[in-house]
Measured scan of single mutants.
Amino acid sequence: MTEYKLVVVGAGGVGKSALTIQLIQNHFVDEYDPTIEDSYRKQVVIDGETCLLDILDTAGQEEYSAMRDQYMRTGEGFLCVFAINNTKSFEDIHHYREQIKRVKDSEDVPMVLVGNKCDLPSRTVDTKQAQDLARSYGIPFIETSAKTRQGVDDAFYTLVREIRKHKEKMSKDGKKKKKKSKTKCVIM
Rank of each mutant, 00 (worst) to 15 (best):
183 T>Y: 01
178 K>D: 11
125 V>D: 14
126 D>S: 08
152 V>M: 06
136 S>T: 03
187 I>C: 15
177 K>Y: 08
166 H>D: 06
154 D>P: 03
132 D>S: 06
128 K>C: 11
161 R>G: 08
128 K>R: 09
178 K>W: 05
133 L>C: 08
136 S>Y: 04
166 H>Q: 09
160 V>S: 02
158 T>S: 05
132 D>W: 02
139 I>W: 01
159 L>Y: 00
187 I>D: 15
132 D>V: 05
165 K>I: 06
165 K>C: 02
156 F>N: 00
182 K>W: 01
155 A>G: 05
136 S>K: 13
137 Y>Q: 08
153 D>N: 12
164 R>F: 04
132 D>R: 04
174 G>W: 00
162 E>P: 00
128 K>Y: 07
156 F>A: 01
132 D>I: 04
155 A>M: 04
177 K>V: 12
129 Q>L: 10
151 G>H: 04
160 V>A: 03
127 T>M: 11
126 D>R: 04
152 V>P: 03
157 Y>Q: 14
157 Y>M: 12
170 M>C: 13
135 R>N: 13
136 S>Q: 14
128 K>E: 14
133 L>I: 13
178 K>Y: 09
137 Y>A: 09
127 T>H: 10
143 E>G: 05
139 I>N: 02
183 T>F: 01
133 L>K: 08
151 G>L: 03
176 K>S: 10
155 A>Y: 00
172 K>S: 11
181 S>F: 01
162 E>M: 09
132 D>F: 03
155 A>L: 06
133 L>A: 11
159 L>T: 01
178 K>Q: 13
127 T>E: 10
135 R>G: 08
156 F>V: 07
126 D>I: 05
156 F>H: 00
173 D>T: 06
154 D>H: 09
157 Y>K: 15
136 S>H: 10
160 V>P: 00
153 D>T: 13
129 Q>V: 15
131 Q>A: 13
133 L>Q: 07
131 Q>I: 09
178 K>V: 08
168 E>D: 08
158 T>G: 03
127 T>S: 12
142 I>F: 10
156 F>P: 00
186 V>M: 11
169 K>V: 11
136 S>M: 10
181 S>E: 13
130 A>Q: 08
160 V>N: 01
155 A>P: 06
165 K>L: 04
181 S>W: 01
188 M>L: 02
127 T>W: 08
125 V>G: 14
159 L>F: 01
146 A>I: 00
154 D>Q: 11
158 T>H: 10
135 R>W: 03
134 A>V: 02
175 K>P: 06
169 K>D: 11
158 T>V: 02
186 V>L: 09
135 R>K: 15
131 Q>F: 08
152 V>A: 11
159 L>E: 00
135 R>A: 08
127 T>L: 10
141 F>S: 02
160 V>R: 02
133 L>V: 12
133 L>S: 05
159 L>C: 02
155 A>N: 00
153 D>R: 11
167 K>M: 02
156 F>Y: 07
160 V>E: 01
178 K>P: 10
139 I>C: 04
126 D>Q: 06
167 K>E: 05
164 R>G: 13
172 K>A: 10
152 V>G: 06
135 R>V: 10
176 K>F: 09
151 G>E: 11
166 H>G: 11
127 T>G: 12
162 E>D: 03
188 M>T: 13
133 L>F: 10
152 V>Y: 11
176 K>V: 03
175 K>W: 04
142 I>H: 09
130 A>D: 04
153 D>A: 13
131 Q>K: 12
128 K>S: 13
129 Q>R: 12
154 D>I: 05
134 A>L: 01
168 E>M: 10
156 F>T: 01
132 D>Y: 02
135 R>I: 14
129 Q>A: 15
162 E>F: 01
162 E>V: 01
156 F>S: 00
150 Q>A: 04
175 K>S: 13
159 L>P: 00
131 Q>V: 07
127 T>N: 11
160 V>D: 00
177 K>A: 09
145 S>A: 09
160 V>M: 05
167 K>N: 12
157 Y>A: 13
131 Q>G: 12
128 K>Q: 12
138 G>D: 04
153 D>M: 13
130 A>G: 08
128 K>N: 12
138 G>I: 00
129 Q>M: 14
166 H>F: 12
130 A>N: 04
153 D>Q: 14
172 K>F: 10
131 Q>S: 10
169 K>W: 07
136 S>D: 11
127 T>R: 08
178 K>A: 15
156 F>G: 00
160 V>G: 01
159 L>H: 00
128 K>L: 09
162 E>K: 03
125 V>K: 04
162 E>C: 03
170 M>V: 07
164 R>H: 10
170 M>E: 15
125 V>E: 07
139 I>P: 03
178 K>G: 13
176 K>Y: 09
166 H>R: 10
141 F>H: 02
188 M>P: 15
157 Y>C: 14
129 Q>G: 11
157 Y>H: 09
137 Y>F: 11
178 K>S: 14
136 S>R: 08
136 S>G: 06
177 K>S: 15
149 R>Y: 09
157 Y>F: 14
162 E>G: 03
157 Y>G: 14
139 I>T: 03
133 L>W: 13
142 I>L: 10
